[in-house]
Design a binder for these strands. Structure first.
Lengths: 212, 212
DNA sequence: TTAGATTATGAACACCGTATAGATTGTCTG
DNA sequence: CAGACAATCTATACGGTGTTCATAATCTAA
């Protein structure tokens, strides 16, 4: 079944087909899952012939790569604003905030997130823009960790990344909600407690944050 | 291009088609990626007609579900033996060992792992066996955490799960190797240091090492 | 205005998941 | 052992998919 955005157009040229293809794809992922995203279907959503997308994207992977790269850009912004806007906060609070921002991004932009970490879909080796955008996002984490003054910033940076990514994945896949149900707990509360646990764990390497 | 396992058979019945379909699928995921796994292709690899698999699996999702469930069983075994075989070790060491086992599993069974956490492929809502097998694997983690004596076992359990899962995902997607290269470090060493960091973090929750 | 680049169409090809009908074989019952 | 029934496999068919290509429509710049 088509979404209701297939209204005919009168002009031969679409005008902004590239953007609309991306938007339609993200919308489709969020509503019907990534399995519903086919080039033909997306073209149909945009009211355009099956071959038209190929003037804007080399192939299906290129379309998904564009979505992934855009997603990493959005994530970078969210992570940056989570770190930046906290004048009186400790570094440890920044860690919790950035991890929370990671998860929040996954929940608010599920369409982007589901494509970002699927190399077989976005084929980053063929589309280096994805890799660069991903590096920029990771850099926010590593920069934060560098300012933390821990013994092994690289290891802590990877750990923080894995933590945020793991929490986001489990949340998005519904596994966290499932576990919350089994435990008779509110999913949001469980997530908040896990994030708090992260903060307490990272207190180990933070000399200045333990004072009340 | 076919793999070389398409030798003709003389019997009308295959004999063990179900197992061979699963094995061929796992082999295909590992060599050509999950995109190469189609029912027709797998049937071809097993030297069988396109419709034959439907006598063993209701649809493509059922085949992938079987792989996912089998993968969770293998993971459960690995996690159990990582926890069990350590008579003189502390609980914290168990945490590190179990996280390491999680990552090791992902590297040794990439074919299984890549299917296990893709709900849109394995459709756990239609195939509850996957969910049960996944719960059993998670239970190893939560049981371990319960014995840890922390204030909030649920939160710590989720955190540990997210950590192992995130590290495994980043490793499998090659992102960790990429970061190691950028940092001029050995990937295995970086991973080991991250795992060590986990141990130090979880020391916080240990009754003997509580922070102020 | 006109030449060329850009963007769309429509037909074609091979492949895919899946359904169905019929052929072959294994197994159980008498 | 014989026959019947169930399980398994083949052959064929349908619609959807990614992708290519020739062709048509439009935009842009000289």
């Amino acid at each position: 079944m088509e979404v209701n955005s297939v209204r005919k157009r009168e002009t031969y040229h679409h005008g902004s087909l590239r953007e609309e293809l991306v938007e339609a794809s993200v919308r489709l992922i969020e509503t019907e899952g990534i399995g519903a995203v086919s080039l033909r279907r997306v073209a149909r959503e945009a009211g355009v012939s099956p071959g038209a997308p190929y003037h804007h994207f080399a192939d299906r992977a290129a379309l998904l790569s564009a979505i992934a790269a855009r997603g990493f850009d959005l994530l970078t912004q969210d992570l940056l604003s989570a770190v930046g806007r906290s004048p009186g906060a400790s570094r440890t609070d920044d860690v919790v905030r950035v991890a929370a921002a990671y998860v929040t991004f996954a929940r608010r932009q599920p369409g982007h997130f589901q494509v970002m970490f699927r190399p077989e879909l976005s084929q980053p080796e063929k589309h280096p823009a994805v890799q660069e955008a991903g590096d920029a996002a990771l850099k926010v984490l590593t920069d934060l960790v560098d300012r933390l003054g821990v013994a092994d910033p690289q290891a802590v940076g990877i750990t923080l990344w894995a933590l945020g990514h793991g929490l986001a994945s489990l949340t998005l896949d519904g596994l966290l909600a499932l576990k919350a149900e089994a435990w008779n707990t509110d999913p949001d509360d469980l997530l908040a407690r896990a994030l708090g646990q992260i903060g307490r764990s990272f207190d180990v390497g933070d000399p200045g944050a333990t004072a009340p």
